[in-house]
């Protein structure tokens, strides 16, 4: 799979403060790329550099195989829809008027505008002034404005910020539908749960550095989930498995950091000692847990 967005040694420094360190982004074409990190980790600055809204101190950005620079940006921006920080829109105008000015600016036809509006399901609210919109409606209008040009790449900075759970679900669903249409979607968030199930590829940023980049599966394989042994004799089993740092966890035994071979060895020992084993399984691991592992327990 080729990459829609690539950066090489991307760096941004403000005065003496480096906010983005030597970033090597790889955003595969047609995926939803979840760009995760706490507030102030450099996500917005990175996204601004991808759009050449901010010039990098060092390094390069390539979008759809072409270098993104000040001299090339206007041409490339025709392929990219974006929503950075707050949603755009002119509050004194109605939703329809906002879409009309986008149509004039980008020389689009009415059909393109209508499709974008229908994609975000805003067609019934177009006659209202945007200043009367809820935040969720403004976010959706912002996404419609970004979608109207039918971009191949969509860069959305915290599009679920400030939305209620229903609004978040709606944006998630929208991103999945867009990716199914072949659009590469890069979406940032400081909340893991918001992109957890939507993103197929993740980039995790902290302090301007990439902690991890890859698929969800790769991320999960980074850390080994605990082995849980169900047994009617947890006390004996815990003592027996003491050399693997086992701990008793209610009616079962929890053994951390056990690879496949060690797990087989443990089961063999339990059976050998005639300790009844009702079940052996790996603990269900959430992305949150993996995250905690990755960030040394600090979370994001």
């Amino acid at each position: 799979m080729s990459n829609a967005i690539i950066t090489h040694d991307l760096k941004k420094t403000y005065g003496k403060r480096t906010v983005v360190h030597d970033l090597h982004l790889r955003v595969p074409q047609g995926c939803v790329y979840g760009f995760l990190g706490p507030n102030g980790s450099g996500k917005s600055t990175t996204m601004k550099m991808l759009l050449s809204l901010v010039r990098p101190t060092a390094g390069e950005v390539h979008v759809l195989g072409r270098p993104m620079r000040r001299s090339t940006r206007r041409e490339l921006l025709g392929e990219i829809g974006s929503l950075i920080e707050a949603p755009p829109a002119y509050g004194h105008l109605t939703g329809a008027e906002n879409m009309r000015l986008v149509r004039h600016l980008l020389d689009l036809d009415q059909g393109q505008v209508q499709r974008a509006v229908q994609t975000v399901r805003l067609q019934d609210h177009l006659d209202k002034r945007v200043r009367e919109y809820s935040l969720g409606m403004r976010q959706r209008l912002g996404i419609a404005m970004a979608l109207a040009r039918e971009p191949r790449v969509l860069i959305l900075d915290e599009p679920t910020n400030g939305l209620d759970p229903a609004g978040i679900e709606e944006v998630r669903d929208l991103l999945t539908r867009l990716a199914a249409r072949g659009i590469t979607v890069m979406v940032s968030s400081h909340l893991l749960g918001e992109i957890d199930r939507t993103a197929s590829v993740l980039g995790i940023l902290a302090g301007g550095r990439m902690l991890f980049q890859g698929t969800r599966e790769q991320l999960f394989s980074r850390s080994t989930p605990d082995v849980l042994v169900d047994t009617p004799e947890p006390e004996r089993a815990t003592t027996l498995a003491g050399r693997w740092n086992a701990v008793r966890d209610g009616d079962r035994v929890r053994v951390p950091g056990l690879d496949h071979a060690a797990t087989a060895h443990l089961v063999d020992r339990l059976v050998h000692e005639r300790i009844p084993v009702h079940g052996v399984r790996r603990e269900e691991q959430s992305l949150e847990d993996v995250f905690m592992d990755l960030t040394g327990g600090r979370g994001l």
């Binding site: 601004k48 759009l51 809204l53 206007r74 041409e75 921006l77 025709g78 990219i80 974006s82 929503l83 950075i84 920080e85 707050a86 949603p87 755009p88 829109a89 002119y90 509050g91 600016l105 980008l106 912002g142 404005m145 970004a146 040009r149």
Partner: peptide, 11 residues
């Protein structure tokens, strides 16, 4: 709001 970013993020 985000209007400046949108203005500079277009063709």
């Amino acid at each position: 709001g985000g209007n400046w970013n949108a203005l500079m993020g277009r063709v």
